[in-house]
Nucleic acid binder design. Sequence first.
RNA 1: GCCGAAGUGGCGCAAUGGUAGCGCAAGCGAUUUGUAAUCGCUAGGUUGGGGGUUCGAAUCCCCCCUUCGGCUCCA
Length: 581
Amino acid sequence: MTQMNELPKEERLERMRHSASHIMAEAVVEMFPEAKLGIGPPIDTGFYYDFGLPRPLTTDDLPLIEEKMRRRIESDVPFEPSLISKDEARGLFRDQPYKLELIDEIADEKVGLYRHGSFVDVCQGPHVDRTGEVAVFKLMSVAGAYWRGSERNPMLQRIYGALFDTEEELQEHLDHIEEALRRDHRRLGRELDLFSFHEEFGPGLVYWHPKGGRMRTIIEDFWRNEHYRAGYELVYSPHVGKSTLWETSGHLDFYSENMYSPMDVDGQDYYIKPMNCPFHIQMYKSSLRSYRDLPIRMGELGTVYRYERSGVLHGLLRVRGFTQDDAHIFCRPDQVKEEIERCVDFMQFFLGAFGFEKFHVYLATRDKGGKYAGSLEDWGMATNVLRDVIQERGLPYDVDEGGAVFYGPKIDVKLLDTLGREWQCTTIQFDFNLPERFDVTYIAEDGREHRPYMVHRALLGSIERFFGVLIEHYAGAFPLWLAPVQAIVIPIADRHVEYANKLAARFAGEGLRVEVDQRSERMQAKIRDAQLQKVPYMLVVGDREAEADAAAVRLRSGEDLKAQPIADVIARMQQDVAERR
RNA sequence: GCCGAAGUGGCGCAAUGGUAGCGCAAGCGAUUUGUAAUCGCUAGGUUGGGGGUUCGAAUCCCCCCUUCGGCUCCA
């Protein structure tokens, strides 16, 4: 027998979580003898189990199930592994269609079982030795989940539980969730007056308010400047295109369910664009290209509209109209490695500039069962180039097996929201499809037409999603270069407003974003509001400051810098702006 | 799209079949204040939309829309 306390913590937690899922399944079967069992694995913060049940569960059922679980834990019965033949297993689970499906797929002749109390499950383990070893847990929620993650399968009911070693750690986890709600970008977006949605006039469509708009402008200006410096040309393309364009691109065949219905213009169908690629290709094709012209890097902050299914919309992180920081790179085969390197470096530069140190890199490879464009050699080459660059840059990554789109392999980078959910932002994709479909060429040294490689990339992904993640990343307390209001001048009494306005004008003249709180409120109230708005600098001015051409500087952190000469404050802020970039 | 939950003034909430209320915010007035909320008054809601049950519906039933948490799908 393994002593639980000898195991590494991770392993011990995994066993406890897995065992808790069995114990939960036992409780559910006790309540619903006809329950059909799905699977019940451990996860990062706990466990879940999927059930097919005669009626929907509600959160009111959870305390009951918890109670049964606690009784089972107290009874401290053993978990007993065993091995039986497949035939025996089929007999044992004859009323459990999902289990039968799993048993059929087991490669071995023998099927592993784990039994505790009245409950037995097809399972490799490992488990804790006795139910009493399961530590503190809490059932969190019920949700629907397709059997085996396919929407063609029936939907089961999933119960999520959290499980940790100690009460303190569980409480920490619950506190973390609560904290996450406080920094939710949807909440901060309202509180900081950055953006809004108006569902009655179209879900998934973002209204950028002045402060959000200011931040977006800052982000976009930064993006444009850096792209010019990096050798990109920036373009603008139309928002709609005739059906013939989307037929040629293949979008009407492969992507139509994500496209808005066409509008009739003079008897022709026009579609609002879900992607920018076809337009960039037209610009490439507008003149004959020499090998000397390559690489051509064509960038655009291109606004696209996609019909996203109603259940997937999520604040700024999943919307129906968004602006991609898109670019297409047309290059010769001998240039493609360097271009990918540049993209990966550029990505790291951007994410770093916005304070993201943690991100998950994925190499998405060909779906071996699916359709694909291009030759197998091309796919092999492209996948190798992508992998080589990631490895040479020393980036940890996971392979997303079969995660590529049909037209080519890609590198994806996902950022985490405040609850730890991953959102794909950066994508760097090979495209073996569109160059072919649009017959994209360049004239090589041999005087003949050759097919260029085409790399499609978005570094921030979309401005909307990136902004959403950015808000949560900083919890709304943006670094000075991004802050929509960098300083607020707080006159103590009405007679100081004039001086305050003069100060604000002076700061504005230095390129700083400063406002004056002229309300007839107490200074404390103005400080509180500025604090809640997470304004980085509060400049309190009264008689003493007006006298001395100074301001009493209070930082967002609460730090009181006392009275400072205005010139010093400006210098400090300008340095602050410069540094954070 | 699927499963579940929810939708009440701008925001956060109360009212469980019997006259829709509270706080914040807003407008007006008073106050002129030294580092996280000054006081008073006023205004604001066909309770997401449509239909039904009932003497009477925010409350019960049906359909639709939207949001939230998942699943699936995606930047």
